[in-house]
Simulated scan of single mutants.
Amino acid sequence: MPVILAIESSCDETSASVCVDGEILSNVIANQTIHEAYGGVVPELASRVHQQNIVPAVQQALLNAKVSKNDIDAVAFTRGPGLLGSLLVGVSFAKAFALAKNLPLIDINHMQAHILAHFIAERKPSFPFLCLTVSGGHTQIVLVKDYFDMEVIGQTLDDAAGEAMDKTSKILGLPYPGGPLIDKHARTGNPDAYKFPEPQIPGFDFSFSGVKTAILYFIRDNVAANPNFIQENLGDICASVEKRIATILLNKLKRAAEAYNIKDIALAGGVSANTGLREGLTNLGAANGWNVFIPKFEYCTDNAAMIAIAAYYKYLKGEFAGQEIAPLARMPISPLTP
Rank of each mutant, 00 (worst) to 15 (best):
G285Q: 13
G173D: 07
H50S: 09
V142N: 02
L250N: 09
H35K: 00
S68R: 06
H185N: 14
A113S: 10
V75D: 01
I215C: 03
N233W: 13
V223T: 01
L250C: 01
A257K: 04
F196A: 14
D107R: 08
E8L: 14
V144E: 03
A96Y: 08
N31R: 11
I219A: 00
Y260E: 10
K66C: 10
D205G: 02
G154A: 09
I108M: 07
N303Q: 03
Y217W: 11
R220S: 14
L253F: 00
I153F: 03
R79T: 06
S17Q: 07
T33C: 05
N222H: 15
T139S: 12
Q32D: 15
K317W: 05
P199V: 11
R48Y: 12
D205N: 14
N251A: 01
G280P: 09
Q140P: 11
I72A: 06
A186G: 13
Q200H: 12
D21Y: 06
V41P: 05
T275Q: 06
V20Q: 03
M1S: 13
L5H: 04
Y312T: 09
R220A: 13
P177W: 07
A186K: 03
P227F: 03
Y299H: 01
G40I: 10
S135F: 11
V49T: 15
G39I: 01
V134S: 06
F293V: 13
